[in-house]
Design a protein around this nucleic acid. Sequence first.
DNA 1: GGGGAGTGTCATACC
DNA 2: AAGGTATGACACTCC
Length: 732
Amino acid sequence: MLSLKKYLTEGLLQFTILLSLIGVRVDVDTYLTSQLPPLREIILGPSSAYTQTQFHNLRNTLDGYGIHPKSIDLDNYFTARRLLSQVRALDRFQVPTTEVNAWLVHRDPEGSVSGSQPNSGLALESSSGLQDVTGPDNGVRESETEQGFGEDLEDLGAVAPPVSGDLTKEDIDLGAGREVFDYSHRQKEQDVDKNLRDGGEQEDTWAGEGAEALARNLLVDGETGESFPAQFPAEVASITEAVPSESESPALQNSLLSPLLTGTESPFDLEQQWQDLMSIMEMQAMEVNTSTSEVLYNAPPGDPLSTNYSLAPNTPINQNVSLHQASLGGCSQDFSLFSPEVESLPVAGSSTLLPLVPSNSTSLNSTFGSTNLAGLFFPPQLNGTANDTAGPELPDPLGGLLDEAMLDEISLMDLAIEEGFNPVQASQLEEEFDSDSGLSLDSSHSPSSLSSSEGSSSSSSSSSSSSASSSASSSSSFSEEGAVGYSSDSETLDLEEAEGAVGYQPEYSKFCRMSYQDPSQLSCLPYLEHVGHNHTYNMAPSALDSADLPPPTTLKKGSKEKQADFLDKQMSRDEHRARAMKIPFTNDKIINLPVEEFNELLSKYQLSEAQLSLIRDIRRRGKNKMAAQNCRKRKLDTILNLERDVEDLQRDKARLLREKVEFLRSLRQMKQKVQSLYQEVFGRLRDENGRPYSPSQYALQYAGDGSVLLIPRTMADQQARRQERKPKDRRK
DNA sequence: GGGGAGTGTCATACC
DNA sequence: AAGGTATGACACTCC
């Protein structure tokens, strides 16, 4: 992490210096928002090849800003820009495209040196990243090495059906959004959809869940809802189209793969992983959706991306564009082809856009984790053609490059999750809890404290009732204990008693009711400060009139009279009624006295039937009022607790997902080690004549007892197929 | 003037 | 059975 920061910092410095040297003002935000790389890398993870397109996007966007393509500072410039975007992505769920680093480093020399290292990781990257989406027009088949790698990929079981690009797209892209966009195309697809009902249904699920969940996220095309999975399609496309046809020797690669991949891929439900990641994104979307999504969705009609795309609908996703092409300035046709908006646009007959079909487990596998695992782990030298020419010492197929690139991507994936998700969301949530702002404040302070005080007050109410009932001096004890919700301070009591023991001070009693004997708690309840309703609407006019009659023979309207008027206004309906009916005791007592004391009190006075009825109504209503308040507080408390539980669960889920990613990374490293060992052991094997075994004819088989056997490839292939069937059968 | 929030009240069920 | 509590629904006021 520290090294990464240092790296990025240096990049930023370079970027700044370069900008000043170039003298070009660059609107970084425009770049970043128009390219939208992050989620793709997050999902694709270790597929360094796909960052190539981003690289070209960088260059393409550069065009619009007037930097000459031949500028010698271009690479530095782009590097700086990429680093800047990485920095910016640190606080979000954006994965810096470190894959670009690997690709760039090895891609540049590829034009001139590729032939010298046909089996290196370079071949892997260039094949998957450059050749993959080569459209029909683009036709330039790249080196045989790349083709061979495509075959390798296919053998990994992570390859889409070996069909033409169009058909592949038809198979994969069943997105509803696309149908909306392209009705004619949709009509054509309907027949296909019928045949692919299962896949379509599953995709509907995706459209309903994934797209909806991610509609707020950065890379979701709000119109088609496919853009987010469209990150996969990019890889699917690359992988699929990198494989023009059935492998020449499928058995060979299958057998080769079997010891390394079978059994390790199956335990993981990659679709589930994908959905988990989508969950992460979804949660992340909760954090960043507002700003970025708007930027994305509100692209102006004249958006150069869409415009460019509409002008050349058949333009393939030109991931195929090589660095060489880009450096020559041929970037105009490569416009931001990975932009989600562009990818989501309907392109009739286009074989390049391959929106993800989750139902296509193969494609899905090829897109996430395992694909990358498989693809990265596949030893290029195991390719028969390449291997036959290889020396006796099998070169490390992936080498440090692959290790580095892959681990970079994985670590970036973690970084994205940790930096983008964890701090932004989890810490934010924690901050919310800690700072207790907003609802959390209410939750921790007002509701809970209220509820606690409420509970205590309730208990104190009952206890006060019991204690009051047990105590001899009911009145005093009652006043001091403050009948729950209607307690008044001594001043109020004095006023009440001075006024003939009628009513209480509603304004203050509201506070008391809310704070339950502790008005000081109101300072913690800002949302209660404005509460000052006067619910006297149901007061009987007669009662009001009688109650509001100014005291006779008072010539002086002094402060006392004003105070009396104020109190009159503050009195509740029942208080006015009680006053009108000349009830000889306060409503507080009526309401809060224990039954025994209440009855005792009633027995002390000669009350009419109307008075008794009113008193009982007052008591009933008063108690019900408190009950309603308690009920509402409980309700609010429940909601807040549920909210907190949800947040806790979300945090737990994020943590579990991070752990899952960590496990996947460990698994990948282990696979890599196994692969290295495999290559080392196989490369050292010699037949009776001292010659190395051909990987096309032999393979190493791991036995259950830990031993390693050299067996013919055909046999290994058969075993591999058997192992492939087992998980399927288990699922059934 | 409409609508949300807060509150009181009623009816009802339950303890 | 009476009293108390819980809660949905409604009405009302205030903002």
